[in-house]
Design a binder for these strands. Structure first.
Length: 564
RNA sequence: GCGCCUAUAGCUCAAUCGGAUAGAGCAACGCCCUUCUAAGGCGUAGGUUGCAGGUUCGAUUCCUGCUGGGCGCGCCA
């Protein structure tokens, strides 16, 4: 509908230009906005405000001219029943009843496809998210990454992208050595307070679980690997691979319980095994952006906007952490992903500059701003009215598993995805679990369940309708029904916008609005009334609303129950 | 000191690439269940959008400068 109005306005601007009412070089970005206030109609347009100055007229006068010309157009009049000039010079459009109710038929006819679009032109997009190190259980911060990342994927899928979900895990490097030593120490019966406990060792109780499983000779299956513990307390290499597999399996189970699955698990260690890190370094040297100083090899990242150059190869011969990162991203590029989105915690934001700089320095024509990043800010956890500090120490460590168990998967996903990623988030565990009706997700699910219940009862009474019925829809004329209709029509644009801006929380916001409109309508009008036309119309709108609620919830990875 | 994010109702958060009277939930106070699920609805109250300037028809939004909060600033990852 916006496109319809927009097309007519484009034509009109051209007309005004040829009539010398607007200068030739006037190129307005005409906005057709959804209105916030019902009194302002269904859509508002700012054209007269933008064009007033170039035209040398008052906005109101220009608006009058525009409205008069539009009124002369018959096709336009069929969909727009009324136009108002309001405020400083907005033109408000009121949809005709036909145009307003046609969305019901659209929703019912499109079925699963309503709201889907092909903005992505079926191109591949790779989304990397979570990417937790296999050194411990997933915490609430990973949960936010999982919720936001997975919803992004669902949004991209709904807008016509071929989405590949990828999890990169750092199974090489110092922190894994540290993990192996920690497990070994636990296997020897040492605790974090022991004198010989590894420096900076992982102290959580889960390390003890890993050690016990290792000693018991257990078998662990993670990804496509199958690792059998040999229980040899001195075989550090065996401990290492067992511990990684063990923790990978735990993380996978948590993610699965959270409704998140990945297409590709990429191992940092594989970059080394296949010589990709070395190859990457050689290419950087060949491209001339490196130099040696103080026995280390440096990358001139300052050439690409960094505030200082970075060490690539340490004096001890090892690579710094971002080198395999660059190799990994080069690999993403070589796999053909023109669009890559990395969802990660804001505490790692400094890697962005380094990775992009490294990719530029390779001289392989990777675009400057590639890849895209979505950063989520930290999550603060409140429990018993106090902030829980995230720490590696067991006991004050809120895991994703804790949240799923205590709050539920649906509520956790909703809470973590319903807020803009760029804002810090306070997750109040007591509030989220104390009284379920405090929880906004239930409000939306309840709207869906109520409509499902109505449909069940309509069926029991033998009331039927066809998705093609249009005559009866004229009966949908209450304020509440019009509000619902208006929101349903916005669904496709809402998805597109949320996907374009990489902001899943817009979907949560929309669903709250739609649920509110639905509850309001539910209280104002009966569905199963005697008048057949009215009843049919309401049942159709109910079915359409239920369908959109379910689709919206699915985008968030939240279930849409038929009864509660 | 530098970089990124942020500051909106008592609390948690929204606000359409700059739009009209800044909106929801929770908390508070009134109403509404012999009627499709009251996990609901209707209403009241609650705001100098951190502060000071600037840009313009119009600023919560953009710019500048302050102030407060978070996260980074390693030859750790």
């Amino acid at each position: 509908m916006k496109a319809f109005i927009s097309d007519h306005l484009d034509l009109l601007v051209a007309q005004l230009k040829s009539d010398q009412l607007l200068p030739e070089d006037f190129q307005p970005r005409i906005q057709i906005d959804n209105t916030k206030d019902k009194a302002h109609g269904d859509f508002a347009c700012n054209l007269a405000l933008m064009a007033a100055k170039p035209a040398g007229k008052k906005p109101i006068d220009l608006a009058q001219e525009i409205v008069q010309r539009l009124q002369a157009n018959e096709e336009f009049g069929q969909k727009i029943s009324k136009m108002d000039i309001a405020g400083p010079g907005f033109i408000n459009f009121f949809l005709s009843q036909n145009a307003l109710t046609s969305v019901v038929n659209q929703v019912l006819a499109a079925g699963e496809n309503f709201g889907r679009s092909n903005v992505g032109l079926n191109q591949a997009v790779q989304v990397e998210f979570v990417s937790a190190n296999p050194t411990g259980p997933l915490h609430i911060g990973h949960g936010r990454g999982a919720a936001v990342g997975d919803c992004l994927c669902r949004l991209l899928d709904a807008t016509g992208w071929q989405v590949v979900r990828e999890f990169y895990y750092n199974d090489a490097g110092a922190q894994i050595d540290n993990l192996a030593l920690s497990v070994q120490a636990r296997a020897k019966g040492l605790g974090p307070d022991a004198a010989s406990w590894p420096k900076d060792g992982y102290q959580g109780d889960y390390i003890l679980d890993v050690a016990q499983s290792f000693l018991a000779g257990e078998t662990v299956v993670a990804d496509d690997q199958r690792v059998v513990a040999n229980a040899d307390i001195n075989d550090l290499e065996a401990i290492r691979s067992f511990a990684v597999a063990f923790l990978r399996r735990e993380q996978d189970l948590d993610l699965k319980a959270f409704g998140v699955e990945f297409d590709v698990y990429y191992l940092e260690s594989s970059l080394y095994k296949k010589g990709k890190v070395e190859a990457c370094v050689e290419q950087l040297i060949a491209s001339g952006f490196t130099y040696e100083e103080g026995g280390a090899l440096w990358l001139r990242t300052t050439d690409f906007g960094d505030d200082k150059d970075r060490v690539m190869c340490k004096t001890d011969g090892g690579y710094t952490y971002f080198v395999p990162d660059v190799a990994y991203h080069l690999n993403k590029w070589q796999r053909g992903f023109k669009k890559v989105i990395n969802e990660q915690g804001a505490d790692h934001h400094s890697t962005i500059t380094r990775v992009r700089a490294g990719l530029q320095a390779l001289n392989v024509d990777i675009p400057k701003g590639w890849p895209d990043y979505v950063l989520h800010q930290m999550v603060t956890v409140m429990r018993d009215g106090e902030e829980v500090k995230i720490s590696k120490r067991a006991g004050s460590y809120v895991t994703l598993r804790d949240l799923i168990d205590e709050v539920g998967c649906d509520a956790t996903r909703y809470f973590l995805a319903a807020r803009a990623a760029s804002s810090q988030l306070t997750f109040d565990i007591d509030l989220a679990r104390s009284k379920t009706n405090d929880n906004p997700v239930y409000y939306i699910q309840y709207a869906h369940a109520r409509l499902a219940s109505v449909a069940r009862q309509a069926e029991e009474k033998g009331y039927s309708w066809s998705p093609r019925d249009t005559e009866c829809l004229a009966k949908l004329n209450s304020d509440q029904e019009q509000a619902v209709l208006n929101l349903l029509a916005r669904f496709p644009d809402t998805i597109k916008k949320a996907a374009r801006e990489l902001e899943p929380h817009q979907i949560a916001q929309y669903l709250r609005d739609l649920a509110a409109a639905m509850h309001s309508w539910y209280n104002a009008n009966q569905f199963l009334v005697d008048d057949e036309q009215t009843r049919t119309a309401r049942l159709m709108l109910a079915a359409a609303t239920r369908s959109v609620l379910a689709k919206g919830l699915a985008l968030l990875g939240v279930t849409a129950p038929d009864s509660m």
